[in-house]
């Protein structure tokens, strides 16, 4: 008690020296985070890994749950619906992420321009609204926006004498509608991350470039973009992981339909895991998805990420 605030001879006060010395304070500070992470992250993952090697159906509590080696993985490899859903997810990924990046970059560059600070503050604040919307709610909003008879989307099209478009009842259009909702929700995220990235560009460098060329594009391409690569890598990793596990928006908006048009891989895994309750196969699917996410993240870091 008394030694905690005593000078230690060097003139600097030492705070709780004994605690610091044996690392208990560090432990105390870190422990809650580690425990929480273990409970909500590590334990479920290990549990899913173990389950992926077992025959385990929650809705059949009287059946035994033996270990069956790689049988569940074999089932997944032979399941055309799973690969169909995975393919659809990649189509979704390569459709929405480039658009989100491009739109996000445009918004970020506009907000990065000097002047009009009041408006920019307002714009930045309004960018947060889609991000703060729960994905399930975004799906419900999507259902209303793309309603054939009363929706905003068709009302806007009617202004230019187009439509009405059958959004959610048509396979292609339903996919587009879900993609548009995702773009609405996640473009602001890209914009804000890229805006933060733009502030990393040293002012002198940017000013020097402006003296060199009048081409806006050249400044973006050769000065700003290299500084943005770390931000872009972050966006790619997070968006890829998000889309691979995207469930709420799709489930509330189309429930994966019509047919299987919007059945992304997570919606499919939910069906197996919580409708059929086959936890074994669903866990195997989830583990494969985890491996895929890790591989993609490594590839992004290898090919996109550059230190400046």
């Amino acid at each position: 008690m008394s030694s905690g605030t005593q000078p230690d001879g060097s003139g600097k006060p030492r705070v709780f020296p004994t605690l610091w010395n044996n690392g208990r304070a560090a432990f105390a500070f870190l422990a809650p985070a580690v425990v929480a992470l273990a409970m909500i992250g590590i334990f479920p993952t290990v549990f899913a890994l173990v389950n992926s090697f077992r025959r385990y159906n929650l809705a059949k509590p009287r059946d035994p749950t033996p270990f069956i080696g790689f049988d569940n993985y074999l089932t997944v490899f032979n399941d055309a619906s799973f690969w169909g859903a995975l393919g659809r997810t990649f189509t979704f990924l390569i459709t929405v992420v480039p658009i989100q990046l491009a739109l996000g970059l445009i918004i970020a560059l506009l907000l990065h321009k000097p002047g009009l600070s009041g408006f920019k503050l307002l714009a930045r604040l309004s960018l947060v609204i889609p991000l703060a919307t729960a994905p399930a709610v975004a799906g419900l909003i999507g259902r209303l926006v793309f309603n054939r008879d009363f929706g905003v989307a068709n009302a806007v099209l009617a202004l230019v004498n187009a439509g009405p478009v059958e959004w959610l009842g048509d396979t292609t259009n339903a996919f587009i509608a879900v993609a548009l909702m995702d773009i609405w929700q996640w473009t602001p995220f890209c914009a804000l991350v890229l805006l933060a990235g733009l502030t990393m560009v040293p002012n002198e460098v940017e000013e020097a470039a402006r003296l060199e060329t009048r081409s806006r594009w050249q400044i973006v391409r050769y000065v700003q973009l290299p500084f943005l690569l770390p931000s872009i890598t972050v966006i790619l990793i997070l968006r890829t992981a998000d889309i691979l596990k995207m469930f709420d928006t799709v489930f509330t908006m189309t429930r994966g339909g019509p047919g299987a048009a919007t059945e992304l891989v997570s919606v499919y895994i939910q069906r197996v895991g919580f409708r059929v309750f086959d936890q074994g196969v669903a866990s195997a699917q989830a583990i494969l998805l985890l491996i895929l996410t890790i591989i993609l993240a490594r590839l992004y870091i290898k090919f996109v990420y550059r230190e400046i």
Partner: peptide, 17 residues
């Protein structure tokens, strides 16, 4: 039934489309 219902729901909508 819930498992069959999933199958019917998917293929049933495909048929209608």
């Amino acid at each position: 039934w819930p498992e069959l219902s999933e199958v019917i729901a998917e293929w049933g909508t495909r048929m209608m489309l």
